[in-house]
Design a protein around this nucleic acid. Structure first.
Lengths: 215, 215
DNA sequence: AGGTTAATTATGCAAGCGTATAATTAACCG
DNA sequence: CGGTTAATTATACGCTTGCATAATTAACCT
């Protein structure tokens, strides 16, 4: 004799909101324990649904992981460039640098997410696609911004040189992003931003600190 | 009626060699699939033993993973500093930079390993210990080398400044290491080394290219 | 209101996981 | 050469995994 209320109560939601909640839960768990640690059951629990529902929206775990990755990569790039505002190219570059090494772009979860995805991306062609698109998109925009900054400063630079500078600046950004996310307690507030602006300025042979202040 | 030879043949080995083989297999698998993907059975298979043997040498999987991590971190640091030879501090710094962004330090497996370990390190106090020791050890040695280079160049720098420069240089190294390992096909041979030497030179306000050539 | 249906839960299955323990056997010693 | 023993294999247990399918039920439509 089973009492009613035995079965779990639930509210119906639109497909978009449920998918969104599942993706968010997936990202959280991948950040904490990697793709393999983000089990279907754990994801369902964090999204406050039962595991069967996942299969209703994503035909396989792999599909869910891909959706989560795509959403995350887009959000990262958008977040970073959204902060890169300013009247001059120099100011926009400085703002971009600061945003890249400051929360919420820099944080432990974000680095954890990156690490959690890395090996998975290597073994899945669809994820490699998303990655390549995002990465090169970011670097191209950075390269264009650098070219503009150099032009404003009256310093022409050919494509090869611009490419090299973009790679170097990107490396500084990535390196600081990495260290800031992996060892947050190792740096004082603003220290990473200061280092980023000074280092990229040094690489480009320009003083970016004024641009940072002015903005 | 079981025929003899049913049971697998094996050769006995010394404890050190077996442990070494198990650690190596563990590192390979963690680089490919993360800690969770490096299952006891997969490790045993790659080391060409049966899974029971792992328990004979390491009382738990966690112990094996810790041993592998400790060995890997030590090897990375040793490998990098072993290349940092030269008559002047400047030459040693240049050599260190080149080694840091060149195989075998830079390679896909190494970055995969780093990513595979990251989230695991976060959740295990013993591994955090090993990590902190290795990381700070590396940065301290880099900072000392930078201080020496600046002194040789007649440019005094207080501790705070040296620390900042070491962080920035370390970030460049890490960033290039990361990009080189994650996207090997994105760079031409020697491109990363050139960028590293030029960028760190720019950050320190010195020309390191001569030192690199002379060495 | 009450029937319909798609969103959600519940249950089950085969494979893989870490760990424990018993059975073998290669290598060493006297 | 035969006995001893530690290195190694074999087997098993309980739990978790991704996936499949059946059973419910909340919300919408007329």
């Amino acid at each position: 004799m089973t009492v009613p209320g035995d079965r779990r109560k639930f509210r119906r939601e639109g497909a978009d909101q449920r998918k969104e909640a599942l993706v968010r839960a997936t990202l959280e768990l991948i950040a904490e324990e990697g793709v393999r640690g983000a089990t279907v059951r754990a994801i369902a629990e964090r999204a406050e649904v039962t595991q069967g529902l996942i299969r209703h929206y994503f035909s396989t775990k792999e599909d869910l992981v891909l959706a989560a990755y795509t959403r995350h990569m887009g959000a990262m790039t958008d977040q970073t460039f959204a902060s890169a505002v300013g009247t001059t190219a120099k100011a926009r570059l400085a703002a971009l640098l600061v945003a890249s090494v400051t929360p919420p772009v820099v944080d432990a979860a974000s680095v954890g997410l990156w690490a959690g995805f890395l090996n998975h991306v290597r073994q899945d062609a669809r994820m490699q696609d998303v990655h390549a698109r995002t990465y090169h998109g970011f670097r191209d925009r950075l390269e264009a911004l650098i070219a503009e900054v150099l032009r404003d400063a009256g310093r022409g630079a050919d494509d090869r040189e611009c490419r090299r500078l973009a790679i170097a600046c990107n490396a500084v950004i990535d390196g600081l992003w990495l260290e800031g996310g992996a060892l947050p307690q190792a740096f004082e507030a603003g220290e990473l931003a200061e280092i980023a602006v000074q280092s990229v300025g040094a690489i480009l042979g320009l003083d970016l600190t004024e641009a940072e202040a002015q903005q």
